[in-house]
Amino acid sequence: MKASATTRAFGELVDLPIVVGVDGSEPSLRAVQWAADEAALRGVSLRLVYASLWERYEGMSLAHDLGKPSEEVMTEDIVDTAEWRARHRQPGVKVTTDVLPEEAEYGLIRESRSALAMVLGCRGRSGVTEALLGSVSLTVAGHAHCPVIVLRGRHDNRVRSEAHGRIVLGVVGQPASSAALRFAVEETLLRGATLEAVRAWRRPLHEPRGHPLITGEPAHFEEALAAELVDEALATVPADLQVQRRTVEGFARDALLAASREADLLVVGARRRHGHFGLQLGRVAHAVLHHAACPVAVVPESG
């Protein structure tokens, strides 16, 4: 399923690009390739932006990644290489580039106001890649105005992967109208995949295992409540969508991290709080951004 140049996102017709934050590192170039596939799938343009003060946050590892002395790492190298990757990957996608003469976190957050989604590579500081999320990626994921997709884990840089064919949605009591659900449904339909909705539940410590509430099917009141919340969240999904419902006993972060090992994309919501700057990422979002085995989409929720 391929969208037209003006694609339907979150139930509304939009004509916005997918934005990629590039810094010249290999993880950011893999993000360019992944985003080019996503842009082709949705029928939208791709915008590559380089915030020229990014190196303040990421140290000297960029020069090391490019195999050049730091004084030879030029803006043109970074932007041109990223553009070549995008055009080589998806020749039919319109690509634009821009250089932002400012700190990456502020520039990218501002870019998110006019983006369909933002894609970032995962690169920690001091050359630690695929281990801890870099400060810029974490800040942008927490404050952006559009969904932010961080390429976690070992992936093949392709949107339409045959490895799993599964989009995982973390259900955290969100209503059927939640932006995270709509984004997950849209990604599932575009890819022809299966949507797996996961909700964790925990057994109250004061209840013994022989308590009447934890006998029979479902085995526990909390499990039944979790199943009900999943059903409510999925009440409005299209009838032809392939859906799997899962309730897991334990911590939400553990359930989602386990599900990410067999997923092509993990979607979680981040709720905006009035009187605060941007999004407030909770422990679950922090955990999956740092440790998920697949790309993670953090979707801002309103209210």
Rank of each mutant, 00 (worst) to 15 (best):
P69E: 10
R246E: 14
S70K: 10
A51I: 06
A51S: 15
D80K: 12
R202A: 14
A287K: 01
L281C: 08
H155G: 15
K94Y: 09
V99I: 14
V150W: 03
E228Y: 06
V136N: 01
V159W: 13
G24T: 04
G269T: 07
A9N: 00
G43R: 07
V267N: 02
A233D: 01
W34P: 05
I149L: 13
A163C: 05
I167T: 04
A193Q: 00
S52V: 02
A86F: 03
P101D: 07
L181S: 02
I78A: 00
I149G: 03
G21A: 05
E249D: 09
G192K: 05
C146F: 03
D37Q: 08
L62M: 12
F10Y: 08
S114N: 12
V44S: 10
P27G: 10
V128Q: 11
T188V: 00
E102R: 10
T236G: 00
G275C: 06
R253M: 03
A104E: 04
P17V: 04
A255F: 10
G216R: 09
L46I: 07
P218Y: 02
G173C: 12
P175K: 05
L205D: 14
L205M: 11
R272A: 12
A263W: 00
H145L: 06
P27Q: 05
A36C: 12
V284R: 01
A179F: 01
I149W: 06
T6C: 08
V95D: 07
Y57V: 05
K2L: 10
A285I: 03
V140T: 07
A144R: 04
F183P: 00
L100M: 15
I18L: 13
M60K: 08
E223P: 03
